[in-house]
């Protein structure tokens, strides 16, 4: 395996509407996720460097392990001032245009 140089940074985001608060993610990524007194995850909104492979891997691990698929690892654009990249499928399900 060659050395992959990673630039940029990432944030682990939780969709609070989907999250049901069983706290699985705190076990999968204990260094990134803390739980509040009701069992819901508290995740720092500050981006972490992608070069921090350990943190990135555990973020991906939590993302895959979340039973509600509420977690998402978002890449932060260079110079994007903390704005995560948009991803396909955001927003409500697309439907054909229709009258209101």
């Amino acid at each position: 395996m060659g050395v992959i140089r990673r630039h940029g940074s990432f944030v682990l985001q939780v969709n609070p509407i989907l999250c049901d608060g069983f706290g699985h993610c705190a076990e999968l990524a204990p260094d990134l996720v803390h739980l509040d007194e009701w069992g819901y995850p508290i995740i720092s909104p500050d981006p972490l460097p992608l070069a921090d492979v350990g943190a990135y891997e555990s973020a991906r691990y939590a993302e895959r392990g979340c039973p509600r698929q509420a977690l998402h690892v978002a890449k932060v654009h260079e110079g994007g001032a903390g704005t995560p990249a948009p991803r396909a499928g955001d927003g409500p399900v697309s439907r054909s245009p229709r009258p209101l």
Partner: peptide, 21 residues
Amino acid sequence: DDNESLPQYRPTKPHVLRIGR
């Protein structure tokens, strides 16, 4: 869009809200 007065999750900013498409 869907007859429910519930806020949506908007991870990106600025987020474009959509009715249908």
